[in-house]
């Protein structure tokens, strides 16, 4: 083993001794404060990330209503306050099962009169499919495309509506 090798090994040993340098109390307190600040900054960052994600993917500016549901049809309207001219797609679910999808482009003069959309063509009407007699639940969701176009989210329109289908229909 050469003198150079011995010197390198001595320096390595020194480096490893340095793996456990004793911190002064003041440096330890500063490092602790830094760790607390980093934790807070990261927590705020995660909150901002979640808020950004929620806004981008679960558009809170979608407005609409499920107005009617019976054995013949299910109807309502939907509009995006951020994009008043857009006609969102809507999906109908009956008793938790997907039934149909269509664009909300049916005329609804009352929606225009109430200034909830840029035009009257924001309504939707689904023909109710044949159902067994008894009570059923209808739910309608607007399809919201995320800002990054990577994800789509379903945003429920209005509240679920229950309706009865009579015998013999």
């Amino acid at each position: 083993m050469t003198t150079g090798d011995l010197e390198t090994r001595r320096r390595d040993a020194e480096s490893l001794t340095h793996a456990s340098p004793r911190l002064s109390a003041r440096a330890g307190a500063r490092l602790s404060r830094f760790l607390v600040a980093k934790s807070l900054a990261e927590t705020l960052f995660v909150v901002a990330l979640v808020a950004h994600f929620s806004y981008a993917h679960f558009n809170p500016r979608l407005r609409g209503s499920l107005d009617a549901a019976d054995a013949r049809e299910i109807a309502g309207w939907v509009a995006d306050a951020d994009r008043p001219a857009a006609q969102p797609e809507v999906e109908l679910y009956l008793d938790g099962q997907f039934v149909a999808r269509r664009r909300a482009d049916a005329a609804r003069a009352d929606v225009l009169e109430a200034r909830r959309a840029a035009s009257a063509e924001h309504g939707f009407v689904f023909q109710t499919p044949p159902l067994l007699p008894g009570e059923h639940e209808a739910r309608v969701f607007a399809v919201h495309e995320g800002a990054d176009l990577e994800r789509k989210a379903l945003v429920e329109i209005g509240k679920p509506m229950r309706f009865q289908v009579a015998e013999g229909r």
């Binding site: 911190l23 109390a25 003041r26 330890g28 490092l31 602790s32």
Partner: peptide, 14 residues
Amino acid sequence: GQLGDAESRALAAW
């Protein structure tokens, strides 16, 4: 003026 062993270890773990 120096951190104790336990405090030093806890800080490293943190």
